[in-house]
Design a protein around this nucleic acid. Structure first.
Length: 318
DNA sequence: AACTTTGTCAACCGCAGGGGC
DNA sequence: CGCCCCTGCGGTTGACAAAGT
């Protein structure tokens, strides 16, 4: 039997989202919260299938998303995690709270894979230790090992940067009082101090960012698109081209301008979602991850010594 | 300046799994 | 227990811009 399409193809719009559609979606989610995607198209009047709405939200509109301009830190982390976990992008993305699995996947496919191939010739072969034929118990142990390895990888990746507080200090750091100015703001923008320093700034769905987003759209998709060249902050180009005035609007200047105002209003209200991860854990502040990371290294060593797996040496050409 | 190639990324597609009934 | 609905995931595609010729 042929599986029926996820949604009725007729009357369902496909392709790039317009700022108006974004606005409708954001407004709806602001009011009802993410979820119940099936109902979104009918309730909003969007001619999109539920899947498309969900994807648009999780990959683009969701608060706390940073776009483009992967830092060395993130790059290394992705490489490590990819080597450990394979192409489990969602799992990898959970360690990079500001990145979407789609972004990471794209970045891997377009940058890192090639980089590794040219430099190390298969140095980062994905591990063949997926739980194919293991018993459940073994599988679970492997999963635990995966987690431990990922934890270690993350820790290693984080360590060189922060310059480097010993774990105890890091612990102190999150243990309350030590709230850094950076981490005391929205959860969505929380990040390790190092990452926060490296990143130009998180693209949280704020008034400003929605306006910026719409500005980017105002310039049309062509302007909005970027080449992720070195130092080109993806998405931020809309800010850099923010000089583009409304006269260049391809979707109707006045409409977009008012849409921007309305979205700004919506964004103010939506801020509550900034502290609520759309995907549990996905927006866990990195400091919490760090805490978790540095918490029980000894446990890791136990696991490692009893390890089922033989981790290939990670020798990356960069 | 015009055309072609390459690189990038948003979006789509189909499958799998979980939960409710 | 089986069915249905919904959501999440990973692979792939197509449009577009920049670089190259």
């Amino acid at each position: 039997m042929v599986r029926p399409p996820c949604c009725d193809k007729e009357g369902v719009k496909k392709g790039p989202w317009t700022p108006e559609e974004d606005l409708v979606l954001v407004s709806y989610i602001q009011e009802h919260g993410p979820g119940n995607w099936r109902a979104v198209p009918t309730r909003t009047g969007l001619m999109r299938c539920s899947k498309s709405c969900r994807l648009r939200w999780t990959n683009y509109l969701r608060p706390g998303i940073k776009r483009g301009n992967f830092t060395d830190q993130e790059e290394k982390l992705i490489v490590h995690l990819q080597a450990l976990l394979g192409n489990r992008w969602a799992a990898i993305a959970s360690y990079l709270p500001e990145r979407t699995d789609n972004d990471i996947k794209n970045y891997w496919n377009t940058h890192l894979k090639r980089k590794l191939q040219s430099g190390g010739d298969g140095a980062a072969k994905p591990p063949a230790h997926r739980p194919a034929s293991s018993s459940k118990g073994q599988w679970e142990r492997r999963l635990q090992t995966d987690i431990d390895m990922a934890r270690r990888a993350l820790r290693e990746a984080l360590t060189p940067l922060g310059d480097l507080k010993p774990p105890q200090q890091q612990q102190q750091h999150h243990d309350g009082a030590g709230d850094s100015p950076a981490s005391s703001s929205s959860g969505a923008s929380q990040c390790s101090p190092s990452a926060a320093a490296a990143a130009p700034g998180p693209y949280v769905l704020t008034t400003e960012n929605i306006s910026r987003m719409l500005d980017g759209w105002a310039g049309g998709r062509k302007q909005g698109r970027r080449r992720a060249g070195p130092g080109t902050p993806g998405g931020a180009d809309s800010a850099s081209t923010g000089s583009s005035d409304a006269s260049e609007v391809s979707y109707g200047g006045a409409a977009v301008a008012s849409a921007a105002r309305a979205s700004a209003k919506a964004a103010g209200a939506i801020s509550e979602y900034e502290t609520k991860p759309a995907v549990p854990g996905q927006q866990m502040p990195l400091s919490a991850i760090e805490s978790w990371l540095f918490d029980d290294d000894s446990q890791f060593h136990q696991v490692q010594s009893a390890s089922l797996i033989d981790v290939p040496p990670m020798d990356y050409p960069f």
